[in-house]
Amino acid sequence: MPDDERLLDELAAALRADAGPHAEPDPQRLAAFRRAVAARNAEAASTAAPASPPAPPAPAPRRRRRLAAPAWLTRPRLTVGTALAAAALAIGSALAVVALDDGGDATPAGVVEYAGAIRLPDGADAGSLEIREIGIGRTVDLRTDALPLLPRGDYYEVWFVGPGDRPGRPNRISAGTFHPDRAGRSNVQLKAAVDPALYPTVEITAEPGDGNPAATGPEVMRAEVG
């Protein structure tokens, strides 16, 4: 409709008027991106070459030093420093033997980074948690019977929490949401592109079904995984 097109044009002019400058990426970020491209090329070259098979995961280690993965899978905060580190990590990982998978089918094994208890706020064991590094990020396996059923619409949410997280200035990444089944069992597997070394606490909160994606509900379980 002509009126709609005219209003869109007018709105475009109004919004662009406060869009600010910066028609070009700044040199520092451009350099970081170039390094990322170089890292990707190095990784592609190493993937094309024959490689020895990945080592099998150790039997349920409590914690295992994580293998280097493509750093952009695990970027926590968007800073130039992180981007530079990401590129450097990716270059370093180019020759590492990691079973990486860029598709939806994760390798079934992966590398166990944490296998242990998850606890109630009072410290009591409440179930088990396992975190594996797979090619696309991490799988989070949670098994607990200690979470009560929630009112319809509410849900539990699993978070990777980083240093300095606090209300108003959160530093956390959601790994997903779930409900217990009718028997009260919560045996769930979630996936998240997050690095436990950077977000070392797994926290479960009970969230109201209010459409607010931020963490607003009480913490009900926690594990230190990083």
């Binding site: 970020r29 968007l78 800073t79 990401a86």
Partner: peptide, 8 residues
């Protein structure tokens, strides 16, 4: 940084 993240 968000744009850099997007491109990466």
């Amino acid at each position: 940084d968000a744009v850099l993240e997007t491109m990466t």
